[in-house]
Amino acid sequence: MKQKLISDLKDGFILSCQALPNEPLYGSRNMAAMAVAAEEGGAAAIRANTPEDIREMKRKCSLPIIGLFKKHYEDSAIYITPTMDEVTEIVEAGANFVAVDCTRLPRPGNQSLDDLISQIRTTFPQIPIVADVSIYEEGVNAISLGVDLVSTTMSGYTPHSPQQDAPDIELVRKLARLGKVPVLAEGRLWNIEQCLNSFDVGAYAVVVGTAITRPQEIVKRYVQNIRRVAVTKY
């Protein structure tokens, strides 16, 4: 079961359907509609935040879901599925995969990443673990702990990772070269060319979110570029 879930992602397009409380499309109904649209378009899977969204998506579409639960703790900067409590909630909601922040930032309660991965393995042995990392060394460490997939999700979102507008293709390349686990390219992928570049360097699948599911950010990019050209032209 686990291996089939993973193999079905091969060369696939994964849509990240997420919205924050202050955004226009926030709400499980809207995110589920995005998931249905993704399924109709041929996506291989969905990446989704919160148990509520995951439950609604499972009711509306048949795609596998990479689940996460963003939650903030006062003693940690980690917020993507930070503890076993969040893991349990999203698995019980129906997530087929669990995405976990595997960066080197301090964890809530000073728990070690090794301990969290071990807990997930013991409690939910059939759930594939997706390690969200920001740099190569974090990916190597997560692989050594036995995760099933590595994603470049956090590159640019930790103070010690490259701060750039473009996707971190080099990180995808370096992790893929290890040949240990499938590598998901995620983060600042805005067009098909960037997705194809990710596959060229070894990505197992690509994950796109903001460029499709956050229309206010899409419009903002159009407006900024139009204004930039207008200023130059006139």
Rank of each mutant, 00 (worst) to 15 (best):
K2V: 04
Q3D: 15
Q3A: 04
K4T: 04
S7G: 04
D8N: 14
L9W: 07
L9I: 10
D11E: 13
L15S: 04
S16K: 01
L20W: 13
E23D: 04
E23W: 00
Y26F: 06
S28V: 06
M34I: 14
A35T: 09
G42C: 14
A44N: 08
A45I: 09
A45C: 10
T50C: 03
K58F: 07
S62I: 05
L63V: 08
I65Y: 13
K70L: 12
E74V: 13
D75M: 13
D75V: 07
I78F: 00
Y79W: 12
P82H: 05
P82D: 07
T83F: 03
D85H: 11
E86F: 03
E86S: 09
E89S: 12
I90H: 06
V91M: 15
A93C: 13
A93D: 12
A95C: 02
N96F: 11
D101K: 12
R104V: 05
L105D: 05
P106A: 15
R107A: 15
R107K: 15
P108C: 14
Q111N: 12
L116R: 00
S118Q: 12
S118V: 05
Q119P: 01
P125A: 01
Q126D: 14
S134V: 08
S134F: 07
S134K: 10
Y136Q: 12
E137G: 09
G139I: 07
N141M: 13
N141V: 10
N141Y: 14
I143K: 07
I143N: 11
L145F: 01
G146S: 12
S151P: 09
T152Q: 00
T153L: 08
M154G: 11
Y157W: 14
P159R: 12
A166F: 08
D168S: 01
L171R: 05
V172M: 13
R173K: 14
A176R: 00
R177Q: 14
K180E: 15
L184C: 07
L184S: 09
R188N: 14
I192M: 10
E193W: 09
L196S: 02
N197A: 14
D200F: 05
A205F: 11
V208C: 03
A211I: 06
R214L: 04
P215V: 01
Q216I: 10
R221L: 01
V223H: 11
N225E: 15
I226T: 01
R228A: 11
V229C: 06
A230M: 03
A230D: 01
K233V: 13
K233Q: 13
